[in-house]
């Protein structure tokens, strides 16, 4: 039995190239972007699990005589939040366009706009939860309220981390300009920020709209 059989696509040994020309270029931007996409995959599984829990905890048993989804989640308010969040995303997109044109000041300006609008969104999420709690609909009231608060809060924590990250990137762009390291971080931040809007689409549909169907 020859060991060579089954080598698959083995090439002709006499002509084979045995060593790489030089270390092949590792493109850090695309490697790190892939790394971040992979991370986002696991992050979205967090939301998948939360939506799974939401699905189970919206039965009447879990509402436990407390407020119903229709009473808790207001779709109109949520739509306003949607507008705010998407506007922040748009501003971040414009910042990425400034990045592509190598205009660090515009990058910073649009990112600052995006962050300010983002803070507004976070404030809206906060007042919504605080308002509910003030009316006695606390997360301790029922299984349904537990998951409602948690889902919104986890989204809010993501937003807060995104805002912190924007602050750091403002400082880094100001300090070192558009180096490869800064650029890949901006690209990652873009993915992160846009992803929050994407998740929000599901939150809006399956929590707010679905609640009052």
């Amino acid at each position: 039995m020859s060991t060579t059989s089954g080598h698959g696509q083995g090439s002709d040994p006499s002509k084979a190239v045995l060593w790489a020309e030089s270390d092949h270029e590792h493109d850090i931007i695309s490697t790190r972007l892939l790394g971040f996409w992979l991370y986002m995959l696991s992050d979205s599984l967090i939301f998948a699990a939360l939506f799974t829990a939401y699905e189970v905890l919206t039965y009447n048993t879990s509402i436990a005589g407390g407020p119903t989804p229709a009473e808790v989640a207001s779709p109109i308010r949520a739509y306003i939040e949607t507008i705010v969040l998407l506007t922040s995303v748009l501003a971040f997109g414009l910042s990425m366009i400034a990045l592509k044109r190598d205009r660090p000041r515009m990058v910073m300006a649009w990112m600052a706009v995006s962050a300010l609008i983002g803070i507004g969104f976070l404030g809206m999420e906060w007042t919504e939860l605080a308002g509910l709690a003030a009316r006695g609909s606390t997360p301790q009231r029922s299984g349904y309220l537990s998951i409602f608060f948690t889902l919104i809060a986890v989204h809010g924590i993501h937003i807060a981390i995104g805002l912190l990250w924007m602050g750091v990137m403002l400082a880094q762009v100001a300090r070192s300009g558009l180096t490869a390291l800064v650029v890949y971080r901006m690209a990652n931040l873009k993915i992160f920020w846009l992803y929050q809007a994407l998740i929000w689409t599901f939150v809006f549909t399956f929590v707010y709209l679905r609640g009052s169907v």
């Binding site: 967090i46 829990a53 905890l57 048993t61 301790q140 029922s142 299984g143 349904y144």
Partner: peptide, 27 residues
């Protein structure tokens, strides 16, 4: 991440008294 969520919700039950997996209040 799913384990993270399962444990996280359990910890919320244990730390702030939510009702994800309790036997009353719709857990």
């Amino acid at each position: 991440p799913v384990l993270g969520v399962a444990l996280g919700l359990l910890l919320l039950d244990r730390y702030i008294g939510t009702h994800f997996f309790t036997t009353g209040f719709g857990g």
